[in-house]
Design a protein around this nucleic acid. Structure first.
Length: 568
RNA sequence: CGGAGCGUGGCGCAGUUUGGUAGCGCACCUGUUUUGGGAACAGGGGGUCGAAGGUUCAAAUCCUUUCGCUCCGACCA
């Protein structure tokens, strides 16, 4: 492609709307433009990268035995009502009506549609296993779209659905997808880690997320420093740490703590370590009041709690509703003497000795509270968010927390959708059975953003070769005859050899060309200009390493291809 | 939805406190000279100051309402 003809509006300045590197660079490098929050147009350069990623993913899927199809974006409401997710997904879906007043939504995901398809076609165990996938635009009215294409309201996703006769088959299908995903991500030149994950709104049993480690990531992942354990902190279990307490339990003491409500305030006021305080959280689990106790220096993991309670919604009790359930006010509640409310406590609370907690009396706390002696929790379980340095649940190592971008997620769904939507087959005995399903997603557009997060410097993007929009960019510096002749020749020969090449033939000054080439991140830059043509040479420069190589003009094409082959 | 901030040519911003009829840099167009890391000079085009209503002789500026965007939380590929 000649850059004089390419629609590539690069920006010298960073648009104010963009905060993270990938968002800024996608705008600056002329890859995309904003229509409204979380909705973007891909310009030619950006779309080329998207298509590169799609092709790599498509190849990995096809090789795994999955088959590509294309499902509609418009979904009928009755399908979603069948699965029970019309209400569950609620405002996340863009809903609308047609001229007859019938309800629809734009597909945020396709379990319903694919299950409706398959239940009509699959009759026999002989038709299974089956894996169907598509690459398509998904629409989700995210509460807070952000970071450009990282969390858009409209995004490109590869979604696959597996159908098996039993759980053993699902395990196999799941493993095949797991491997295909690693292959696809590696093929894109990304450093991706698979981590254990919560199943969330998808339902089902086992689940893994594929994370690109990057500071801009919205997810926190716990890695063990000595074994292979890795999990999203939503899911990560806390290793049980027996705290040896040498202290003798002391008698409970009521202390006046006027206006001291938060753990920080109380621990500072009483001069005790926050780890020796008990945080009491007043919550409503599907309308049921609940007191949750965790150590003052821990945070409640709401996912763990909701999963344990099998609750749809866990929320904090609003200040104005507080009196309905408790005698005191927020900031002064505690488990001692509390009646009529279920108490759940984190395992760490169980071992605490002489702790501080609310006295259930405004402006008072209790010192020297001892679990078991002064109050009884209905249950002790793992409820906290793991922290840096926590024990690994699988071995004796320690956990380290890192940020990551979720580029893929795979789920063992089981029979959640086949049961609610009646997708069955006949087994060898002629008996009707529910199809066992799995679902598997890759955020194609997010993956592009993640790749940029992982590969950039102060000059711009540094594309991994596999997903670079072009492999080589030729800069023609100056408009003397020789420069033009040589760069044109190189351009047409490289193109003929199948090397995707950009020719910067614009009437721009050298500095502009150098900077644009760096900004759009083409892996290999070739500079043609009078300076080195004098010595019958052209210059090659590797974007990532900065390495500069003089290439003899006589054998330039072979030289360029050779360099290109050893670039990652 | 809760908290914070911002809307002024395509992009980045000043002007708003103290009302006086819109400005700077980049980009764009024309010409000349330039040409190895975002050129110089000269000339030029483009903005109902997010929108609506109000106060005033006069509103980008003050008041009310509203829309949009960004950031922090719950959601997720």
């Amino acid at each position: 492609m000649r850059m004089s003809n390419l629609y590539l509006p690069t920006l010298k300045e960073t648009p104010a709307e963009a905060e993270v590197a990938s968002h800024q660079l996608m705008l600056r490098a002329g890859m995309m433009r904003t229509l409204t929050a979380g909705v973007y147009t891909y310009l030619p350069l950006g779309w080329r990268v998207i298509r590169k990623v799609e092709d790599i993913v498509r190849k990995a899927m096809d090789e795994s035995g999955a088959q590509e199809l294309l499902m509609p974006i418009i979904h009928t409401a009755d399908l979603w009502k069948e699965s029970g997710r019309w209400e569950e997904f609620g405002p996340l879906m863009i809903k609308f009506q047609d001229r007859k007043g019938r309800d629809y939504c734009l597909g945020p995901t396709h379990e319903e549609v694919v299950t409706a398809l398959v239940r009509n076609e699959i009759r026999s165990y002989k038709d299974l296993p089956l894996n169907l996938y598509q690459i398509q635009t998904k629409v989700r009215d995210e509460i807070r779209p952000r970071f450009g294409v990282m969390r858009g309201r409209e995004f490109i996703m590869k979604d696959a659905y597996s159908f098996d006769v039993d759980y053993e088959g699902l395990d196999k299908s799941y493993r095949i997808m797991y491997d295909a995903y690693m292959k696809a991500f590696t093929g894109c030149g990304l450093d991706v880690r698979a981590v254990e994950a919560d199943t969330g709104a998808m339902g089902g049993s086992e689940s893994h997320e594929f994370m690109v480690l990057a500071d801009a990531g919205e997810d926190r992942i716990a890695f063990c420093n000595s074994c292979s354990y890795a999990a999203n902190v939503e899911k990560a279990l806390a290793g049980e740490k027996k705290i040896r307490q040498d202290e003798e339990p002391l008698p409970v003491e009521e202390v006046h703590t006027p206006g001291q409500k938060t753990i920080e305030e109380v621990s500072e006021f009483l001069m005790v370590d926050p780890a020796k305080t008990i945080k009491a959280l007043a919550l409503l689990a599907d309308g049921e009041p609940l007191l949750v106790l965790i150590a003052g220096d821990d945070q409640l993991n709401e996912v763990k709690l909701a999963n344990y309670l099998a609750a749809k919604e866990v929320t904090a009790i609003e200040d104005e509703d507080f009196e309905k359930y408790f005698q005191s006010s927020p900031g002064f509640i505690g488990p001692v003497g509390l009646e009529g409310v279920r108490i759940l406590a984190d395992l760490r609370v169980k071992d605490m000795v002489n702790a501080v907690t609310g006295a259930n009396k405004i402006d008072y706390h209790l010192k020297n509270v001892n679990p078991g002696r002064d109050f009884t929790a209905d249950e002790y379980l793992d409820l906290r968010i793991v922290k840096n340095g926590d024990l690994c649940p699988k071995c004796s190592g320690k956990l380290e927390i890192k940020s990551g971008i979720e580029v893929g997620h795979i789920f063992k769904l089981g029979t959640k959708y086949s049961e609610s939507m009646g997708a069955t087959y006949l087994d060898e005995n002629g008996k009707e059975q529910f199809i066992v399903m799995g679902c598997y997603g890759i955020g194609i557009s997010r993956l592009v953003a993640a790749a940029i997060e992982q590969n950039n410097d102060d000059k711009g993007i540094i594309w991994p070769k596999a997903i670079a929009p072009y492999q080589v960019i030729i800069l023609a510096l100056g408009n003397d005859e020789e420069t033009i002749r040589v760069s044109e020749e190189l351009y047409s020969e490289l193109t003929a050899r199948g090397v995707e090449t950009l020719l910067d033939d614009r009437k721009e000054r050298p500095g502009v060309k150098f900077n644009d080439a760096d900004l759009i991140g083409i892996p290999l830059r070739i500079t043609v200009g009078a300076r080195s043509l004098q010595n019958n040479q052209i210059e090659a420069r590797v974007r990532r390493s900065g390495e500069e190589i003089q290439v003899k003009l006589d054998d330039a094409i072979e030289g360029i291809i050779e360099i290109l082959e050893r670039i990652e």
